[in-house]
């Protein structure tokens, strides 16, 4: 077991060039994921978490463009690969599961056939019979009862949880080294979500995959992640091991986020709120992106936050935070 990270993202910037201006969806993101490790990317809508994932596998559509950065996967920079090399890597070595299982599956092709296509593309030496067996085995692995019959279903004949399992089966069909799961359980009911989270954990343990798990749900983060990166307006504002993050969240945004979640069994008459909304990604104010909503800035009367953007600094071992409050600790 080496300690070399499976994936290392450095200074990644993905901008969208629109008529209204440049949207800086991902604006200088750094992180790494090791083999067998789950990194959660957490944040609210529009913070750039999905766009970071799409940038890694280079599925950014126009008018979006990766303008800067490196994505080192197993020692090579993916951003220097050409199209056909990326196709080879996508699906086989890195695969991605999306939020809406039904819109990611082809509605007019039986699910067994869709799985078969993945295998056909990446394993040329497998014959038809072997592929069929592998398809059945995959469906069985993800917990679909009666896989022989289910392989002949169309996506609309399956429930949401079932369809998401098929997506996961497709994601792991080629035993990828890195799995990116983008809100894989958000569209599912909680009892089905519990089944799917269980499944992803089991597969991670068995196959020692590195996993990037994208979610907005802090509860899911607490359950799935080894490491957590909290994103806000296109940047990572805090990065720590899951225990450390929940025990002592340092960034005022993370603190607000954790405090504002209603927790089952801990009734509060009033919930904490983060005032205001996320600033527009087109004309980001100078200084800290969270400054306009930050209570700590007002309490500590920090003028600096409005003019200078803080850097993501390690203020304690393994705990990085982007905030002027911790300037001296770094």
């Amino acid at each position: 077991m080496t300690d070399e990270p499976m994936l290392k993202v450095e200074n990644l910037r993905t901008y969208f060039f629109t008529r209204g201006g440049t949207v800086k969806a991902v604006d200088g993101v750094n992180f790494e994921v090791k083999r067998g490790q789950v990194l959660a990317l957490v944040g609210e809508s529009g913070c750039g978490k999905s766009m970071t994932a799409l940038s890694i596998i280079q599925l950014v559509d126009k008018p979006g463009k990766i303008v800067e950065g490196t994505v080192i996967f197993d020692g090579e920079n993916l951003l220097e690969r050409n199209r056909s090399q990326m196709t080879e890597i996508r699906g086989k070595r890195i695969s991605m599961i999306f939020q809406e299982p039904r819109s990611s599956l082809n509605p007019v092709i039986r699910v067994g056939k869709q799985l078969d296509e993945v295998l056909k593309l990446h394993y040329e030496d497998m014959d038809k019979h072997e592929r069929r067996q592998r398809v059945i085995q995959l469906l069985k692995d993800v917990g679909i009862p009666d896989p022989e019959r289910r392989a002949n279903n169309y996506p609309h004949e399956m429930s949401g949880g079932m369809a998401q399992r098929v997506m996961i089966a497709m994601g792991i069909a080629c035993e990828p080294e890195l799995l990116i799961a983008d809100e894989p359980t958000t569209a599912l009911d909680v009892t089905i979500q519990a089944q799917v989270l269980d499944l992803i954990r089991k597969l991670r343990d068995e196959m020692q995959m590195a996993v990037i798990f994208i979610t907005h749900d802090m509860g899911v983060v607490a359950e799935m992640a080894d490491d957590v990166a909290v994103m806000y307006a296109g940047t990572i504002v805090e990065h720590a091991a899951v225990g450390s993050l929940f025990e002592e969240p340092m960034h005022p945004y993370t603190q607000g986020l954790i405090a504002s979640i209603p927790i089952l069994g801990e009734f509060k008459d009033r919930l904490e709120v983060i005032p205001g909304t996320v600033p527009s990604l087109i004309d980001m104010p100078p200084g800290c992106r969270f400054a306009s909503r930050c209570k700590a800035r007002v309490e500590h009367n920090l003028e600096k936050c409005l003019h200078e953007e803080p850097e993501l600094l390690e203020v304690r071992e393994g705990h990085q935070v982007r905030c002027w409050l911790y300037e001296e600790n770094a």
Binding site: P145, S159, G161, M162, D189, V190, T191, I192, Q193, A194, Q195, L197, D198, D217, M218, G219, V220, V221, A222, E223, A225, V242, G243, F246, E247, I258, I261, I263, L264
Partner: peptide, 25 residues
């Protein structure tokens, strides 16, 4: 009971016994 135990709690220290319901509705 199953519905409540299925809700992820935002605290990595709490490890509950989870009732995983089999199958779909």
């Amino acid at each position: 009971q199953a519905l409540m135990s299925a809700i992820p709690i935002p605290n990595p220290k709490i490890k509950r016994e989870r009732i995983i319901l089999q199958g779909d509705v």
